[in-house]
Protein backbone atom coordinates (compact mmCIF):
# COMPACT_ATOMS: atom_id res chain seq x y z
CA UNK A 1 0.00 0.00 0.00
CA UNK A 2 1.42 3.34 -1.09
CA UNK A 3 0.47 5.86 1.57
CA UNK A 4 0.27 8.90 -0.75
CA UNK A 5 -2.21 7.09 -2.99
CA UNK A 6 -4.08 5.97 0.09
CA UNK A 7 -4.31 9.49 1.49
CA UNK A 8 -5.54 11.03 -1.77
CA UNK A 9 -8.29 8.44 -2.17
CA UNK A 10 -9.36 8.79 1.47
CA UNK A 11 -9.62 12.57 1.14
CA UNK A 12 -11.71 12.16 -2.00
CA UNK A 13 -13.87 9.63 -0.16
CA UNK A 14 -14.68 12.16 2.55
CA UNK A 15 -15.39 14.83 -0.07
CA UNK A 16 -17.73 12.63 -2.12
CA UNK A 17 -19.52 11.43 1.01
CA UNK A 18 -20.14 15.02 2.09
CA UNK A 19 -21.26 16.11 -1.38
CA UNK A 20 -23.65 13.21 -1.87
CA UNK A 21 -25.25 14.01 1.47
CA UNK A 22 -25.47 17.76 0.96
CA UNK A 23 -26.60 18.09 -2.67
CA UNK A 24 -30.26 19.02 -3.08
CA UNK A 25 -30.98 16.98 -6.21
CA UNK A 26 -31.44 13.33 -5.27
CA UNK A 27 -30.48 12.04 -8.73
CA UNK A 28 -27.06 13.68 -8.44
CA UNK A 29 -26.79 12.33 -4.90
CA UNK A 30 -27.27 8.81 -6.29
CA UNK A 31 -24.64 9.37 -8.99
CA UNK A 32 -22.10 10.77 -6.51
CA UNK A 33 -22.77 7.81 -4.27
CA UNK A 34 -21.70 5.64 -7.23
CA UNK A 35 -18.46 7.63 -7.42
CA UNK A 36 -17.96 7.08 -3.68
CA UNK A 37 -18.38 3.32 -4.15
CA UNK A 38 -15.90 3.28 -7.00
CA UNK A 39 -13.28 5.13 -4.92
CA UNK A 40 -13.88 2.61 -2.15
CA UNK A 41 -13.28 -0.18 -4.66
CA UNK A 42 -9.94 1.39 -5.67
CA UNK A 43 -8.91 1.58 -2.04
CA UNK A 44 -9.68 -2.11 -1.48
CA UNK A 45 -7.81 -3.11 -4.60
CA UNK A 46 -4.82 -1.27 -3.12
CA UNK A 47 -5.22 -3.19 0.12
CA UNK A 48 -4.80 -6.52 -1.75
CA UNK A 49 -8.46 -7.44 -1.22
CA UNK A 50 -9.24 -8.10 -4.86
CA UNK A 51 -12.38 -10.17 -4.26
CA UNK A 52 -13.91 -7.47 -2.09
CA UNK A 53 -12.96 -4.81 -4.62
CA UNK A 54 -14.54 -6.81 -7.43
CA UNK A 55 -17.75 -7.24 -5.46
CA UNK A 56 -17.88 -3.56 -4.61
CA UNK A 57 -17.30 -2.57 -8.24
CA UNK A 58 -20.20 -4.76 -9.34
CA UNK A 59 -22.55 -4.14 -6.42
CA UNK A 60 -21.81 -0.69 -5.05
CA UNK A 61 -20.95 1.24 -8.18
CA UNK A 62 -23.30 -0.67 -10.47
CA UNK A 63 -26.39 -2.18 -8.95
CA UNK A 64 -27.01 -0.08 -5.84
CA UNK A 65 -26.72 3.17 -7.83
CA UNK A 66 -29.32 1.76 -10.24
CA UNK A 67 -31.62 0.88 -7.34
CA UNK A 68 -31.30 4.40 -5.96
CA UNK A 69 -32.03 5.95 -9.35
CA UNK A 70 -35.07 3.72 -9.84
CA UNK A 71 -36.47 4.79 -6.49
CA UNK A 72 -35.71 8.47 -7.09
CA UNK A 73 -37.52 8.41 -10.42
CA UNK A 74 -40.49 6.62 -8.86
CA UNK A 75 -40.77 9.02 -5.92
CA UNK A 76 -39.76 12.68 -5.86
CA UNK A 77 -36.49 14.16 -6.95
CA UNK A 78 -36.27 17.17 -4.69
CA UNK A 79 -34.84 17.14 -1.23
CA UNK A 80 -35.14 19.83 1.40
CA UNK A 81 -31.68 19.38 2.87
Amino acid sequence: MIWQFDLIILVFLVITALISLSVKDLLSAAMIFGVYSFLMCLLWAGMAAVDVAFTEAAVGAGVSAVFLIATVLRTSRRSSD
Binding site: M1, A17, S20, L21, L26, A29, A30, F33, Y36, S37, M40, L43, W44, M47, A48, A49, V52, E56, G60, S64, L68, T71, V72, T75, S79, S80, D81
Partner: peptide, 27 residues
Protein backbone atom coordinates in the same frame (compact mmCIF):
# COMPACT_ATOMS: atom_id res chain seq x y z
CA UNK B 1 -31.10 14.26 7.48
CA UNK B 2 -34.73 14.95 6.69
CA UNK B 3 -35.02 13.01 3.45
CA UNK B 4 -35.50 9.22 3.57
CA UNK B 5 -33.24 8.52 0.59
CA UNK B 6 -30.51 10.65 2.16
CA UNK B 7 -30.86 8.56 5.28
CA UNK B 8 -30.38 5.39 3.22
CA UNK B 9 -27.29 6.82 1.52
CA UNK B 10 -25.96 7.63 4.98
CA UNK B 11 -26.63 4.06 6.06
CA UNK B 12 -24.60 2.77 3.10
CA UNK B 13 -21.74 5.12 3.90
CA UNK B 14 -21.72 3.93 7.51
CA UNK B 15 -21.70 0.33 6.29
CA UNK B 16 -18.82 0.79 3.85
CA UNK B 17 -16.76 2.58 6.49
CA UNK B 18 -17.07 -0.40 8.81
CA UNK B 19 -16.25 -2.80 5.97
CA UNK B 20 -13.21 -0.64 5.16
CA UNK B 21 -12.02 -0.91 8.73
CA UNK B 22 -12.36 -4.70 8.72
CA UNK B 23 -10.52 -5.09 5.43
CA UNK B 24 -7.72 -2.84 6.62
CA UNK B 25 -7.12 -5.13 9.59
CA UNK B 26 -6.05 -7.89 7.21
CA UNK B 27 -3.41 -5.83 5.42
Amino acid sequence: KNNLIKKLIGMSIFQTAIILFYVSIGV
